[in-house]
Write a protein that binds this DNA or RNA. Structure first.
Lengths: 148, 148
DNA sequence: GAATAATGACAATCTAATTGTCATATTAGG
DNA sequence: CCTAATATGACAATTAGATTGTCATTATTC
């Protein structure tokens, strides 16, 4: 017998939706001057700091179509923020990873975010943040593990 | 001295982003057969169960442009899911509220969501959900209260 | 070695949302 | 009470992120 109400759980969902919109708006302000779109940013985030994935792999992780990721990755390649590396498991589909420029740029993004995050979370009891983190991670794992 | 790490706080943000995308996809599957878009849904959610707002008021709440809400509300009006009521504070700008059909429809949506939510949250300790709820609400209030 | 599947590229389309504009109605100030 | 400033609704064009569909080519598997 869990004793949280359905409405409480539902509100968590609702808050996630609202927070996303507000955070996205805030975050875009932070990084718009860097010429990085939120799609770019998502890919950079998956690759940071030293991960290497193929385009189709990124698409699976990001849960979008490979075509969409392809366009984003091509844009990042052109800007020299990511690079292709030989893929031992697949001759044609190269591994994508950050260049040092890309890593540096994403660290700039991270730094700005962290500032904002620090301000946003300031004064919250540590336990709350930890519990929230763990709860959200659990939800995420459940949703990701069961991709309908 | 708060003792959560910045990275922990940052992960909360990151999780919110990922959860939003997964939840949105999941939620859209639930309601797509009802002919309700996510914009429709957001408006219905604001009006449920008995709230009445003008279009500009809804736009402020939803943090989108009034033009966008206008289009959505017009669509809902045409479908008979919301209705206009005289506004004591403004002659021209009517109050929008749910019709009984709209309320019923949104309850269907709610019901489906609740099922999914129950499945998703099943087995989580009640305290975690409550703490998460409160933490997210606080973040939301901070972001909403300080609209840049 | 042939059949099947995966990849990259490209085009068209979609949806949620934005910005800009206009006429008109409404409100608030003098 | 009248005028100036503002708010509203309607409409058009555009944007961004993403989808679906298609095609040629390359890999993988049987």
């Amino acid at each position: 017998m869990t004793s949280f109400t359905n409405s409480e759980a539902y509100q968590v969902i609702w808050h996630i939706r609202r927070l996303f919109r507000l955070l996205a708006a805030r975050s875009d302000e932070h990084i718009s001057d860097l010429g990085v779109t939120s799609a770019d940013r998502a890919v950079l985030e998956f690759l940071y700091p030293e991960h290497a994935f193929t385009v189709p792999e990124l698409a699976v992780r990001y849960r979008v179509t490979r075509q969409h990721v392809q366009v984003t990755v091509n844009r990042l390649l052109k800007r020299g923020l990511v690079e292709q590396r030989p893929n031992p498991r697949h001759l044609r589909s190269k591994l994508i990873r950050l260049t040092s420029r890309g890593r540096k740029l994403f660290e700039t993004i991270l730094g700005r975010d962290q500032e904002a995050v620090t301000a946003l979370f300031g004064g919250l009891p540590a336990g709350c943040v930890e519990t929230t983190h763990n709860t959200l991670r659990t939800l995420l794992e459940r949703l990701e593990g069961d991709p309908q």
